[in-house]
Structure formats: structure tokens, C-alpha cells
């Protein structure tokens, strides 16, 4: 459990970081909280010759809001997000997701940007990011660009980030009225990763129908996905138990499901359906609670 030798850089500005990246090229690797990269380096599955630690770039650490637009710096730790009153109020899905990551020690060190850049197929953030239709800010010496969550996750641990780009922040919108959000997962008993994790955001109309549903699914396949088929079933419909069942039934549709020692592909597909159903039900319940509307009598 000892890494290969590497050279350590700790830039204090983005410019310095870009310069280090340009100089080290494919031999360099950015590290933030180190909770994805360091373990695989210790196993010698990754052996970058240069480690560029962006942890001292203070501007990447903030969580702020302006006119309903929330920006979370890439270096915000899971715990920082879990404990953020601002997020609890405006986008509770993020603190709820953070609270399900690893353990306290991991949450104290690991960062949202690091997790998203690593894009482990069973990480928790991707589900929430997809369901929130977040935008991922990537900056390089060439300039800045914003990547839609739906376009961000390309394949197993592969993202839309270019080699010269640094993920600098994540932007989400404050939760609209009559909206409920929920993140539920089945923890792997050893790693704590999501066997399956489902993030659901449901906005209801005045009459209690689904104005918008967004569902992000992680852990099931090689990358996190948006469960579009589920959303389509619900759109414009009253979220009755029956309707939620119907929507959840298509959660794993078209996915190439992972299988490992702990859960077969078939079981993962089943979990995707059950957890989608549960996350949706919880989000709907919260949406109803959040609105001043009387709950609609629903029978399955």
C-alpha cells in the first residue's frame, strides 16, 4: 500500500495549476481531497509522476447563492455541503446526498469536485447532479465552459473534462416551489458506495400533478444516468402509487448493468426499480409537504 514515487506541486492559483498541468501533461494528475485518487495510487493502479494539489486554491472552496443560482466550489468537502444551512434551505438534495457518502472521515476530506472528476460509477454525487440538472464549470487557460450534467458523464470513470481543464464549480438552481427532493441508496457494506443510488426531484403543479420529475441513477451501470424513461411516465400525471410503480418499472430500461461479488446485474436492475420507486415517493411526499396545497387523495 505504498505509491510509486511522485513529485508534488501545490499551486495557490488556477493559473499556476494550469501551468503545472501544461508542463506535466499526461504524467500529471490533479488531486483535491485525495479520497478517490490516493487509494488507487496506494494500490499502484494509478501512478502519476506529478501530483498537482489544488487544495490551496481558496476561491474553489465557497458555497454561495445569488438570485436563486447556487454555486458550489469544487473544493467544497462533502461535510461542508452536508452542514450548509444555505443548501439545506435551497437545495436539500445536496446535503442529503452528502450525508450518505462514505463515513465522517471521508466526508471531512473528500470534495464534490474530486468525486465528480473521478466519476466512480457508484459514487453518490453523480445521481444528485443529474437530477438537479446541474452545470459543471470547467476552466482552463483557454477559458471557461459550462457542461450540462447530462453531457458530463461519458463512460466508466470517463467525463467530458478535457486534459487541460479543471473542474472549478458546480451550479444548481434553488429548489422551485412545490418541489420535493430525495436521495436513497443501498450501501455496499464494505465500501459504502451505492449498490444503487437514486436521486429524485419532483415539482408538482397547483393541482398536484407532476410538473417536472428528474431522476438520477448511480451504481447500476458503468456511469450514472438520468432515468429519462421514468420521468416521461410521470410527466403531467398525478403521482399516484400506481403511477409511481409504473414509472419505477422502467428505471433500469436500456441500461447495461454492472455485476460484482455483492450484486448481480439482475439484482441491481431490481434495486434500481425499488429505490427509484422509494425516492420518487419520498420526493412527492416532500413536495406535498412543501406546498400549501392539500395533499391529493391518492390510492394505488
Amino acid at each position: 500500500m505504498i505509491t510509486e514515487p511522485f513529485e508534488y506541486h501545490s499551486p495557490t492559483t488556477l493559473e499556476e495549476a494550469w501551468q503545472a498541468m501544461a508542463e506535466t501533461g499526461a504524467d500529471g494528475k490533479i488531486v483535491a481531497g485525495g479520497h478517490s485518487l490516493i487509494p488507487i495510487m496506494k494500490l499502484r493502479l494509478a501512478s502519476p509522476k506529478y501530483l498537482i494539489d489544488i487544495g490551496r486554491i481558496e476561491e474553489l472552496r465557497n458555497i454561495r447563492e445569488e438570485d436563486g443560482r447556487i454555486e458550489i466550489g469544487a473544493l467544497a468537502t462533502h461535510y461542508q455541503i452536508e452542514a450548509s444551512d444555505l443548501l439545506k434551505r435551497l437545495c436539500p438534495l445536496l446535503p442529503e446526498t452528502a450525508s450518505e457518502i462514505g463515513d465522517v472521515q471521508v466526508r471531512n476530506k473528500g470534495t464534490i469536485g474530486g468525486s465528480l472528476a473521478h466519476a466512480d460509477p457508484a459514487a453518490d454525487w453523480p445521481a444528485a447532479i443529474l437530477a438537479l440538472e446541474a452545470e459543471i464549470e470547467a476552466r482552463s487557460a483557454r477559458g471557461s465552459r459550462s457542461i450540462k450534467a447530462a453531457d458530463y458523464f461519458l463512460d466508466l470513470m470517463t467525463t467530458a473534462l478535457q486534459p487541460d481543464e479543471i473542474l472549478t464549480s458546480i451550479r444548481v438552481r434553488a429548489m422551485p416551489p412545490h418541489t420535493g427532493q430525495a436521495y436513497l441508496k443501498l450501501h455496499h457494506p464494505a465500501s459504502g458506495y451505492a449498490m444503487v443510488g437514486v436521486a429524485a426531484c419532483v415539482t408538482l403543479t397547483e393541482s398536484g400533478a407532476v410538473a417536472k420529475a428528474a431522476v438520477g441513477l448511480t451504481g447500476a451501470g458503468a456511469k450514472a444516468v438520468r432515468a429519462v424513461a421514468v420521468e416521461e411516465v410521470l410527466s403531467g400525471k398525478s403521482p399516484t402509487n400506481h403511477k409511481l410503480d409504473e414509472a419505477a418499472a422502467v428505471a433500469a430500461q436500456g441500461l447495461e448493468l454492472n455485476s460484482d461479488l455483492y450484486a448481480s446485474a439482475e439484482y441491481r436492475g431490481h434495486l434500481a426499480r425499488v429505490y427509484t420507486r422509494r425516492a420518487l415517493a419520498k420526493a412527492v411526499e416532500r413536495a406535498r409537504g412543501a406546498s400549501s396545497l392539500q395533499p391529493v387523495a391518492v390510492q394505488g
Partner: peptide, 29 residues
């Protein structure tokens, strides 16, 4: 009873070689 299992595949490779895969019990469980 619930979690731990040190698994070798049919070729004698240990598949649970880290605590990411070998499920040690934790207090919160």
C-alpha cells in the same frame, strides 16, 4: 452472519483483497 466473506475465484485469486470489498462490520451497522 451478515457481511463478511473472504472470496477466492475458481483460479485461486482472492477477490476481496481490500476493505473496499471485504465487509468488515462497522459500529453504525
Amino acid at each position: 452472519a451478515l457481511w463478511e466473506d473472504h472470496v477466492y475465484d475458481e483460479n485461486g485469486q482472492l477477490l476481496t483483497g481490500t476493505l473496499m470489498d471485504y465487509a468488515m462490520p462497522k459500529a453504525h451497522q
